[in-house]
Design a protein around this nucleic acid. Structure first.
Lengths: 197, 197
DNA sequence: AACTAATTTCAGTCTTGACTGAAACAACCG
DNA sequence: CGGTTGTTTCAGTCAAGACTGAAATTAGTT
């Protein structure tokens, strides 16, 4: 299976970005390939298309499973495992956020809590203690915020994203440079949201 | 300079996480050290505290500068460069988001636009074309959303985060499991925000 | 200018982890 | 059960990049 030029470009770029996103090149390339192809592929097709070792594909598929990014689909009359990924970018986004949160955020929150609980915390500077507390508070807030957001329906989430910084009017009277129109219009909105807290 | 137990734990953990966040261990450790210490340190103090090579510190400081995470502060009567990082976690968060966006998001948006502009795009499956378009649309939406959010005042941003999924009531009638109270209360809010778009 | 202090650069070493091919394993079939 | 097909494991190789020490460079001082 030979990729068309655009698909090839997409797969190669996704692979490169993967290395900065914390997964290795092959893993990201396989995911990109499944995404752009849009139908279940077996390991040999992937091996051939990406020109890497069969065993490398096997390990990378396992890694993608750990990320909940692929599922194996049985095909009538074919014993080989076939894999597919979602073609819904929003679901993809949700999965990535969920997984990264649990790998990159939650462990740190754990450690920070430990730090504050530990008997040794008292011997630190007051200012240092405060910074650890603030760091924890920020990470906890972001973490539960992310958990809430990924539960939303894609269409709802898109609307929230599009709304962007305009929500600030609901929590704060003073508009910033980012979105400074309609401050008066949303004044009653601000009231009701405050009431909802 | 010997670190107290909690500070040491913090620095070591931050260093480990750094590797999953896309910066190397020493870079993340230095940043954590400056953050927890809360006063400008010179390269030799850092070298000694973290027990790494002086030249490694030099390179890592340069890397932190590229990330806009540290600044050098002149100290009266001392020729050596001293470095500090912000002790405001929100400013820190903003900087990291800004930098990661420009490293990990913007280049991909560029490539996706290229893909769609290219003459070769027509030869791809209609479905594949659509997926690339949707991917681009999602990334553009997230990108400009992030740009708007990091322009907010920390206190405003915190309120927006705390508001969390409740904002969905402003854009969508049907509440989800995440935050399903006060749907009626925010009904007039929803109207006014829609009007503001 | 010569000397000293501080920093940066760089060639080489070392570590980590990605990748490979071969062998082991598992599932299915006749 | 032996043979066939497909998958996983694993020891060894390789590549990328983190780290070091020594040398070069820059800046400040007398």
């Amino acid at each position: 299976m030979e990729l068309k030029p655009v698909a090839k470009k997409f797969v190669l770029h996704w692979g490169e970005m993967g290395t900065t996103w914390g997964v290795n090149r092959t893993v990201a390339q396989i995911h990109a390939l499944l995404f752009i192809t849009g139908r279940p592929l077996n390991a040999d097709e992937i091996t051939e298309t990406l020109d890497v070792a069969r065993s490398n594909v096997s390990m990378s598929l396992k890694e993608l499973s750990n990320w909940n990014l692929i599922r194996s689909v049985p095909l009538m009359g074919d014993r080989r495992d076939h894999y597919e990924t979602t073609t819904d970018v929003w679901e993809l986004f949700r999965t990535v956020v969920r997984e990264r949160k649990s790998r990159e955020f939650d462990p740190t929150i754990e450690v920070l809590r430990d730090c504050l609980k530990s008997g040794d915390i008292a011997s630190e500077d007051k200012a240092a203690q405060l910074r650890i507390k603030e760091t924890l508070a920020l990470m906890e807030a972001l973490s539960s915020w992310a958990s809430e957001m990924i539960r939303l329906e894609p269409s709802t989430m898109m609307k929230v994203i599009k709304l962007g910084a305009k929500v600030q009017h609901l929590v704060h009277g003073k508009p910033s440079a980012a979105a400074n129109s309609s401050a008066t219009k949303s004044e009653n909105a601000r009231q009701s949201v405050k009431a909802a807290e």
